Computed example of a mutant assay.
Amino acid sequence: MLPPRTYVFFGLNAVRILGIISMLLVFASSIFVLVHDVQAVNRFMAEASESDMQDCDYIPGSTVPNQPAGVFWAVVNRLLIIFQVIILILSEVGWPLAFFDRFFPVLGSAFGLGALGIFQALIGAAILSHHVDDFTLVTAFFLFAIGCLNMLLGLIFREGAKARRSITNWRAQAKSVLPSAEDFRPAFVRPNSSFVPSMFKSGAGEERAEKSGFGFGRQGEKAAGLKGFLISKPLESLPRYAPPPRSEGSRSNSPEPQFKSSKYAI
């Protein structure tokens, strides 16, 4: 049986793929509606009279309102929807992630899916508020449903939703057996540290000889003496349980032990 994080990973990525598909469909339908509106406005302006323009609220066969600058705002609306959909698709793909983290952080890696779901629901509601064709209606409703689902996932997983569905984090967790922890060891004892190799890097000539080191022998003492360092010989010491050493004078003055003769001696 797979661990729970596997099901969470595949579930979040399935919602991501569905969101990208829905936004691509909305992108295509917005271009289709934009072209259709422009054709309908041109046909209406060529055929309609002044009385027809005063009687209708919307230009027939389009989503353009029959009011001052109505065509302009209808075109701007579609262009803004297309631009927003492109931004949301790039945020779902994760490129460029540094741009979103710095200039648009609500769509970056530090935030969850709630803001993304709000944007998707707003775009879907803006499209559904107009009389559109069947294809645009279905794609907008699909996007609105995905936006509501993303808002729900944002409330459940909060800011960790994008980290849970990230492919790079998944690969890193799959490679590591133990959980990752910060290494508090000094730099010179770390296996992957560049501290030790940097100690032995040197140039050419005398600089290489000076940086290579002389060890702890006579050459090391000589090099240290030339630099002004004094190396003192450590004092000899004995353990506490050892008897104190005898001096030479006390050893010579002390009488030699005499052995008494015994009748058992040979």
Rank of each mutant, 00 (worst) to 15 (best):
L88K: 03
L88E: 03
L88M: 14
L88W: 02
L88T: 05
I89D: 00
I89A: 07
I89L: 12
L90I: 02
L90W: 01
L90N: 09
S91D: 05
S91F: 08
E92N: 12
E92G: 10
V93T: 08
V93Y: 06
V93N: 00
V93R: 00
V93C: 05
V93H: 01
G94H: 06
G94K: 02
W95S: 10
W95L: 12
W95V: 14
W95H: 10
W95E: 01
W95M: 12
P96A: 05
P96M: 02
P96E: 01
L97E: 08
L97R: 09
L97H: 06
L97F: 06
A98F: 11
F99Q: 00
F99G: 07
F99P: 00
F99V: 09
F99L: 13
F100W: 03
F100K: 02
F100C: 03
F100S: 02
F100P: 01
F100E: 02
F100N: 01
D101M: 07
D101K: 08
D101A: 07
R102T: 11
R102M: 02
F103M: 10
F104C: 13
F104I: 08
P105L: 05
P105N: 02
L107I: 04
G108V: 05
G108N: 04
G108C: 07
G108S: 07
G108P: 07
G108F: 11
S109P: 01
S109N: 11
S109E: 07
S109Q: 10
S109D: 08
A110M: 03
A110V: 06
A110T: 05
A110L: 04
A110Y: 01
A110E: 08
A110S: 14
A110Q: 10
G112W: 06
G112A: 04
G112H: 05
G112D: 01
G112Q: 02
G112E: 02
L113Y: 13
L113F: 12
L113N: 12
L113M: 14
G114L: 09
G114C: 12
A115G: 10
L116M: 15
G117L: 04
I118C: 10
I118E: 06
I118H: 06
F119G: 06
F119E: 04
Q120F: 10
Q120T: 09
A121P: 00
A121S: 15
L122F: 13
L122D: 03
L122I: 13
I123D: 03
I123K: 04
G124S: 10
G124W: 05
G124R: 03
A126F: 12
I127K: 03
S129W: 08
S129I: 11
S129C: 14
H130Y: 14
H130K: 15
H130F: 14
H130L: 15
H130S: 15
H131K: 14
H131T: 14
H131L: 11
V132F: 09
D133V: 07
D133E: 09
D133P: 00
D134L: 14
D134F: 14
T136H: 11
T136A: 15
T136V: 11
L137G: 11
V138R: 13
T139V: 12
T139G: 00
T139F: 13
A140F: 07
F141E: 08
F141Y: 13
F141L: 14
